[in-house]
Design a binder for these strands. Structure first.
Lengths: 159, 159
DNA sequence: TTCGCTGCAAAGCTTTTGCAGTGGT
DNA sequence: ACCACTGCAAAAGCTTTGCAGCGAA
C-alpha cells in the first residue's frame, strides 16, 4: 500500500521527470485501480488527445519498475494492470474454465515474502500471486471447450 | 509435481483426444521444462515439420487449462512457459533493473495455498508467484534506463 | 547545451482464427 | 455421419521503437 508521494519519490530516484503527461497517466490509472493498457490509453486521450500511445506504455513500464503497478496476464485477452497503492494488496484465484476471478488477502504470505526477499538481499517492490483451478461449479461440468470472453475492443479516439 | 499419466487423465476428463501431435508436443515440452512458445514450435517442427504453429499454441492453452504448464510474463521478451510436473514447484524473484531471476522453493506457501483454495471450494491446478524488486547490486546503482535483453530471435524452420 | 521526454507512425512480436479437409487417443 | 482436430496462412492484438523536435535544468 503505497501512497502517491512515494511513487513520485521512487520515480525521482530513477532520475526521471514527472512530466504533465506522466502525472495525468498516473492520476487516471489510480482512478481505475484495475485496467487494461488500451483502456488507459483511451481514457487519457479523452482528457488530452495529444498524449501518444507510446507515452502511456512507456509510463506503465516505468511504474512497473518502481513497483507502482503490477501486470497480470490472465490468459484471456489483454494483460490487466493493477495499481499497488491506495488499496491493500490482494492475490488472485482464477477458474480456468469459466474465468471467474476471486481476489483475496492473505497477510501470512506477505510476512513470508519479506523473509524470502531478505534471504536474497533484495528490496521488494511488488509481487503477484495467482492460483489457477476449477471453481465448485466447473468441477462438475466438463464442457469440451472453455468459454472464452470476447477480445478487447477499443475504438481509436479521434484526436 | 504431476506425472505424465495424470496429465493424460486430466486431458481425458476434458473430452479431448490425445492425438499424435499433442503427445509429441507434451514430450518436447517436458524435455525443456522451461521454454518460450516459439522455441517449442521450432523444436517440434524439427521432429515433425508438418505440425502447425497453431496446433502448438492450441495445445499449450489446453495444457494450461489442466494445470500442466504455467505461463510467466517477465516483461522482457516473450512469455516463458514452464511445465509443472517432473520437477518440484518453485517461485520466482526478479530484479526489475538487471533482469536477474532467482528460483526458490517455499513449502510453507504451498500449505497456505491449499487452505485458501479450500476456503473458496476450488480445486487447485497450478499457481504462479512472482516477487519483483531490486537485487543487492541494483539497489546501489540507478541507471537512467534499465538494461534490456535482446528480443527473441527465432528463424523459421524450413519445412 | 544537454538530454530526458514526447508524438507519430511504423514495425515487431506473439498469438489467434477462419476455413476446408481429415480421421477416429 | 459426427465432430474433434489439424494445417495453412492471414489476421489480430498488444507493445515497442526510430526519429525528429521540444523543453526543462
Amino acid at each position: 500500500m503505497k501512497r502517491f508521494v512515494e511513487v513520485e519519490q521512487l520515480l525521482r530516484t530513477k532520475g526521471v521527470r514527472l512530466t504533465g503527461q506522466r502525472q495525468l497517466i498516473v492520476r487516471r490509472a489510480v482512478a481505475y485501480l484495475h485496467f487494461v493498457a488500451e483502456e488507459l490509453v483511451r481514457d487519457v486521450r479523452t482528457i488530452d488527445p495529444s498524449v501518444a500511445r507510446g507515452t502511456v506504455y512507456r509510463t506503465l513500464a516505468l511504474l512497473h519498475e518502481v513497483g507502482a503497478v503490477e501486470k497480470h496476464d490472465f490468459r484471456y485477452g489483454a494483460p490487466n494492470y493493477e495499481v499497488t497503492f491506495a488499496k491493500a494488496h490482494h492475490d488472485h484465484l482464477m477458474c480456468v474454465q469459466c474465468g471467474e476471478i476471486i481476489e483475496f488477502q492473505e497477510p501470512r504470505w506477505e510476512r513470508l515474502q519479506e523473509e524470502v526477499v531478505k534471504r536474497y538481499g533484495y528490496q521488494l517492490l511488488s509481487h503477484t500471486h495467482k492460483l489457477y483451478g476449477l471453481c465448485r461449479t466447473c468441477q462438475r461440468i466438463h464442457p469440451k471447450r472453455p468459454l472464452k470472453p470476447p477480445r478487447l475492443h477499443v475504438e481509436e479516439v479521434v484526436a
